[in-house]
Each structure stands twice: as C-alpha cells, then as structure tokens.
Nucleic acid binder design. Structure first.
Length: 416
RNA sequence: CGGGGUGUAGCAUAGUGGUAGUGUGUUCGGUUUGGGACCGAGUGGUCCGGGUUCGAUUCCCGGCUCCCCGACCA
C-alpha cells in the first residue's frame, strides 16, 4: 500500500474526548474513527488488524472442528422469551426495536438462543453430535456507560462459538478443546504470558464460568493470580471459592487489574431444554443437547494489545497482527534516482509477498519518522539518498529500537 | 441509572454581555530536506431550543453530547 493513497491521516493532537490510551492512539494513527461513545468505525489500517486477529482465531477454532457461519443481528423476541431473557430486568443490555409490520425484534447481543433454535433443524440424532459452530459478528449492547475506548463499546466485533454434545464426556472434551484453542490464540496475539484462565461468575449465562483475563492496567476487572500455579480467580467470586481445594491460600494470590479478553460458559443441558433442542440417543430416548458457548472480544483484544505494547511514540504491534509487516519509508524522493530505487524495493518486497506500507509521500523526514513511530509497524526500512550511496537500508525494529544496516539481499532474506 | 465535569474552525485550545484570538491542518508563493523546518499570503468556528437584554458565544432554564467516578456488565 502506498501511503500517498491511504485516505486516513495521522494527527499530532490527542483527541480531547478520549481518555483511554487505546482510543487516543488508534484515532491519532488513523486506525479508527469515533462515531459516538463506545462506537468506532474501523478504517483501513484498523480493519487489517481486526482481520489479522480474526484469522488467528479462525485458524484455531477450525483446528478444533469449529464450523464458521454468520448469524443474523436481528433476533426474535419469542426465542428469548422461552429462556426468560427478553425482559430488560434480566438482560439490561438489549437494543430493541419495533417492526413496522408489527411485533418486536432484538439486536443481537449474544446468540445462544437463535443458534440453539436453528440447530433443531440440524440435530436429531446422537450421530449428529458433537458439533461446534462459530461466527464473527458485530455485537450490539446497550451499555449504560461505554468507556475505555474500544475495550468496552456498544458495538464491537466478537467471535462467538457454540458447542453441542450428546454426552457430558463429549461436552467436556469440547469445552477443554476450546480452552486450549483460546490459550493458543492469546499466545499468538502476543498476550500469552499475561493471560490467565480465570474462575469467574457466569453473569446472565450460568453460575460460574471461565474467563480469559489479561493483566492490563486499563482493564476493568480485579483478578487474584498466582503465576507459578497458573491460578486466577475473579474478585467477584473470590469469597465463594474454596481456595484449599485449589491448593492455595489467599496470601499466595496477587491482586491485579485485568481485561477480560475471552470467556467460556457451560450450560449443561438446561439451555437446550429451554429452547427445545433435543436428540435421540441409541435407545431412541429424547435427550436435551449439552451446550457451551465461547466468546473472544476481537476488538477488545486489539485494544488490550495497544494498551500493553504502546510507548510514548505511538502504537507498537506484535508482528502477527500488525496491519503491515514493513514500513518502507522513502526519503529524498524528489531525487528521481532515489525514488526509482525505493520504488524498486517496494515492488520487489510486494512481489515476494511481504506486506509493505510504502511512505512515498512528499513530506519531510521528521514528519515521516514521527508518523512511522505512531503507526507502529514492526519494521521500518528507510530508503534514502544516504542509504543509496552506501547500498544499504536502515532497518529499525519498532518494539526494541534496534537499528540494523542491511543490503538489498539481506533485506529480502530477512523479510521475504 | 446516581454524582461530577464538558461543549468555540477538520483537530487542539484561549477569551469576552458589544466586530471571536492562537497553534495545528488545509490552499497559494518562496526558502528548505534524516526527527512534525522557516518566511509571507489565504481558508475556516461559538452543540440545539427557549428566556433575560438594545444586544447572548458569554447570564438563566431545558435538552442533547462527550469524558470521569460509582452502580451494572462480556
């Protein structure tokens, strides 16, 4: 991508209406645009990050036999009434609307009910189980107070999966597989070291659940962790937790702020019973399906990555989810020889399949470097008159500041 | 939803009951060219609705907005 063609602009000033670091930087760098409180447009660079994260999640969920689909945003009132969760007193984040044709619809804040109902058409025998479906979708939640930039919005991208099993063993296997897949996801997002499988309350879903909590100052949750034993307990259930059973005492737990990047809920057979999702077992008996649901906040995870890795110069993306791997910064481009040379490198890298953002703009070096730092791509490759004379490129690793001087061959060997 | 704050140009901000200022962006001209360079000339603004007043961006009332704390929540 040529930066001269990129429609988004960077800005020096910190937006006056954002306190959250993630929103400040993502807006300044042109990754997102604030539409209203808790609602952000994802611009080309931001979308690439979202898609990178989605792809990692997709690969991991596919690897445990999840099947991707896409559900509707509009949801039926009658379905949610079956499980007594249409009422605002029960689920207070509902956006709802009236149909002109009569009746009411809800805007999807989660999809257990419609997808369980849908599966009535596809599950009739134990031979159809186990199975897992998932989707990426914009979830709509009428938050009383949106905050923390993209970490707690009224509209956000979420991956949600739903497992359906005939037996408790099958169910536990899928639950465990999801947990493992999530662990791999957060590892690949660069959050592995600071992300804990956490015992938590189940909210509107179940009594207890497992959350994936990432240690992060900007997070909203308080979690008690023990790094050695890998134990983490959400403050909300600390009192109810039998610490002795976990082989730990309270003073072995460290209190930290965390952000919930994922969660998994175990519904047992209750949900299916309420919705009416049954299968016939070997004896021909009609049994409710075991269900679980599993979420990863894609855009929230993006916000957490920003919060954790950004420095005072701007964003710092882990290589796996950066919008581009290389920021090729062209200097002295008014000199045709230099411009041609930089163009040549750009084309060669693109041909070799390297994701490159090429700063070919007519701008001064200082501005280009400042923008480069702000955008936070993993590697900055400078093509300048000075470099041309030496036959070298200056390569700077954004995260560490390490500077190398590479020949064209070395550059290709490194990045292609 | 309770409490506190806020709203002035694309962005960030100052100020005033009497012609609204600065930085930045942007446009044009010139000098520059490895860390947001300089000079000159343009461009562009008081959240919405009422009220008080000769006159309101300023004061009052209402609404909306955004931010923060709390409650709630994935």
């Amino acid at each position: 991508m040529r930066q001269s063609k990129l429609f988004t602009k960077t800005q020096k000033e910190v937006p006056g209406d954002e306190q959250a670091l993630n929103a400040q930087l993502l807006i300044r760098a042109g990754y997102i645009h604030k539409e209203m409180a808790g609602v952000y447009q994802f611009l080309p660079l931001g979308l690439r990050v979202v898609e990178k994260i989605k792809q990692i999640v997709r690969e991991e969920i596919n690897s445990i036999d999840g099947q991707e689909m896409i559900a509707t945003s509009l949801q039926r009132k009658d379905l949610w009434e079956r499980t007594s969760r249409w009422d605002d007193e029960v689920v207070d984040v509902w956006f709802k609307s009236e149909l002109k044709a009569g009746g009411e619809v809800g805007f999807g804040w989660s999809h257990e009910e419609p997808l369980a109902d849908m599966m009535i058409n596809h599950i009739s025998s134990y031979k159809d189980l186990p199975t897992m479906i998932y989707q990426f979708q914009n979830k709509l939640r009428n938050e009383l107070r949106a905050k923390s930039g993209v970490m707690r919005g009224r509209e956000f991208v979420m991956k949600d999966s739903y497992s359906f099993a005939a037996t408790e063993e099958q169910h536990n296997e899928m639950y465990e597989a999801s947990k493992q897949a999530y662990t791999r996801v957060f590892e690949r997002l660069g959050l592995g070291d600071d992300t804990y499988v956490t015992f938590a309350a189940g909210g509107a879903f179940t009594e207890f659940s497992h959350e994936f909590q990432t240690v992060c100052e900007a997070g909203e949750d308080i979690t008690y962790i023990n790094k050695e034993k890998g134990i983490a307990i959400n403050e909300e259930i600390l009192e109810k937790t039998d610490l002795a059973e976990l082989g730990i005492t309270k003073d072995q737990l460290e209190k930290v702020k965390t952000a919930e990047v994922g969660n998994i809920f175990n519904f047992g057979r209750e949900k299916a019973k309420e919705v009416g999702l049954f299968f016939k077992d070997e004896n021909g008996d009609k049994i409710p399906v075991w269900m679980g649901s599993y979420g990863i906040g894609i855009t929230r995870a993006m916000g957490v990555v920003v919060e954790k890795f950004a420095d005072n110069k701007g964003l710092v993306w882990p290589e796996n989810i950066a919008p581009y791997k290389v920021h090729l910064v062209g200097l002295n481009l008014e000199d045709k020889e230099i411009a041609d040379w930089a163009e040549g490198v750009y084309n060669a890298l693109v041909e070799r399949g390297v994701e490159v953002l090429f700063d070919d703009r007519d701008a001064r070096p200082g501005e280009k470097f400042a923008d480069s730092d702000l955008l936070g791509l993993p590697y900055r490759v400078v093509a300048s008159k000075r470099g041309r004379e030496e036959g070298k490129f200056e390569v700077v690793t954004r995260a560490t500041g390490e500077v190398r001087s590479l020949t064209e061959e070395e550059l290709f060997a490194d990045f292609a």
